[in-house]
C-alpha cells in the first residue's frame, strides 16, 4: 500500500475545489448561525443561486462571466430578502423549516421542465462556464506542486479561491469585532433583550442573512467556474447539513472556525475514504465492496454531526467556559 499516495490524495481534497465551495458556504453560515443565531437550513439555496447565476448568464444568455458574478451577488441578496422578510420574525425552528423548504422549492423550480430553456431542467447547464476565468490563468503549463495533485486549471481555482476565502474571513472578522457584531451576537443570545435596548433586530438579522448568503453564493460561483457544470440535483438539502457539520467542527462563532472545520472535515472524510479504498483494492478488507465506501463516509459524517452536537457543540477547539453557559 502506498501511504504517501493516500496522504497526497487526502490533502489534495482537504484543500481542493469542493472543500473551498463548502468553505464559502460555511463562512457565510458562520455569520448567520454562528454569530446571529439564525437557523438557516437553506444555505444550499445561496450556493445554487451563485452557481446558476453563472450558468444562466454565461450559457443561456451568452454574456460575460464578470457580469455573472455581479448578478450572482444581486440574486443572492434578493434571495436573502425574499427568504428573510417573511420568515425572520418566526420562531427559530419555523425559520429552519421554511428555509429548508424554500431551498427545495427552488431546486424543484430550476430543474422543472417549465423553465428548461433558462435553467436547463434536470440536466442543468453544462459548458465552458469559467472560460474567461481560466483564460487568465498565469501558471506555466507544466506547473506541479509537491504532495498536491491538482491540475493546472484546478490549481488556479484553488489559489484564487483560498485568497478569496481569506478575504471573506477578514471581512467577517472586521464585522464581528465591531459594534455591529456586538448587536448580532446579542440577537443570538436573546432577541427580545436587544429589541428592548433600541436595536432594530429584524434589520440586523436581514443584514446577516444577506452577508452570509452573499459569501455562500461566492462558493456557488466558484463551483460553476471550477466544475464548468451546474446541475440542480447537486443542491440537495444535505449540502446545508454538511456545511453545518463543518462549521460545528471548527467551532461556530469563531472567525477561523469555518477554515479549521473545513480542513478537518475534508481531511477526515477524504482520508477515511482513500484509506478504505486502498485497503479494499489491496485485498486487506474483503467484506466490503468498493462502492460501500461512499456510504460509509456519510454514515461517519452523520454520526460525527450527532456526536459533535452532543459532546462538543462549541467545536473541537472551543472554549469550555462557553459550553457551560450554553443553555440551548
Amino acid at each position: 500500500m502506498d501511504y504517501l499516495q493516500i496522504l497526497s490524495l487526502t490533502l489534495t481534497q482537504a484543500f481542493g475545489v469542493t472543500a473551498l465551495i463548502y468553505l464559502f458556504a460555511a463562512i457565510g453560515l458562520n455569520v448567520q448561525f454562528g454569530y446571529t443565531g439564525l437557523l438557516n437550513f437553506g444555505q444550499v439555496a445561496f450556493v445554487a443561486a451563485g452557481a446558476y447565476a453563472v450558468g444562466v448568464i454565461v450559457l443561456t444568455f451568452d454574456l460575460s462571466l464578470w457580469l455573472a458574478i455581479v448578478v450572482g451577488m444581486v440574486v443572492s441578496t434578493l434571495l436573502a430578502l425574499l427568504l428573510g422578510i417573511p420568515t425572520l420574525r418566526l420562531r427559530a425552528d419555523y425559520l429552519a423549516i421554511v428555509t429548508i423548504a424554500a431551498s427545495e422549492l427552488l431546486r424543484l423550480l430550476v430543474r422543472s421542465i417549465a423553465f428548461k430553456d433558462v435553467f436547463g431542467g434536470a440536466q442543468g447547464l453544462n459548458g465552458k462556464l469559467g472560460r474567461q476565468f481560466h483564460d487568465l490563468n498565469p501558471l506555466p503549463a507544466d506547473v506541479a506542486l509537491p504532495v498536491f495533485t491538482w491540475s493546472r486549471q484546478d490549481l488556479w481555482v484553488v489559489i484564487v479561491g483560498w485568497g478569496l476565502a481569506l478575504l471573506a474571513t477578514l471581512l467577517v472578522w472586521g464585522l464581528v469585532r465591531s459594534p455591529w457584531g456586538r448587536v448580532v451576537k446579542g440577537i443570538r443570545e436573546d432577541e427580545a433583550a436587544v429589541l428592548s435596548l433600541g436595536k432594530n433586530v429584524f434589520v440586523y438579522k436581514l443584514q446577516a442573512l444577506v452577508i452570509g448568503g452573499g459569501i455562500a453564493a461566492f462558493g456557488g460561483i466558484l463551483w460553476a467556474v471550477a466544475k464548468q457544470s451546474v446541475q440542480p440535483d447537486t443542491f440537495q438539502p444535505d449540502v446545508t447539513f454538511f456545511v453545518y457539520t463543518i462549521l460545528l467542527l471548527g467551532g461556530a462563532a469563531r472567525v477561523f472556525g469555518p477554515i479549521v472545520g473545513s480542513i478537518i472535515f475534508w481531511f477526515l472524510l477524504a482520508g477515511f475514504g482513500e484509506l478504505l479504498y486502498a485497503l479494499i483494492n489491496n485485498g486487506y478488507i474483503e467484506f466490503l465492496a468498493a462502492q460501500q465506501v461512499g456510504s460509509m463516509r456519510f454514515m461517519l459524517m452523520g454520526l460525527g454531526l450527532m456526536l459533535l452536537m452532543i459532546f462538543r457543540p462549541q467545536g473541537i477547539f472551543g472554549d469550555r467556559r462557553e459550553l457551560a453557559l450554553d443553555a440551548r
Binding site: 437557523l39 453545518y244 454514515m299 454520526l303 454531526l305 452536537m309 457543540p313
Partner: peptide, 29 residues
C-alpha cells in the same frame, strides 16, 4: 439521555439531522 443532559432543542434538532444522515446512508450501505 439527551433530555437528561439538558441538551437544548436546537442542538437536539441538529442531532436529529445527523441521525437522519447516518440512517439514510446505513440503508445505502
Amino acid at each position: 439521555p439527551l433530555r437528561r443532559r439538558k441538551t437544548g432543542l436546537i442542538a437536539a434538532m441538529i442531532v436529529s439531522i445527523g441521525l437522519a444522515i447516518l440512517l439514510r446512508y446505513t440503508l445505502v450501505f
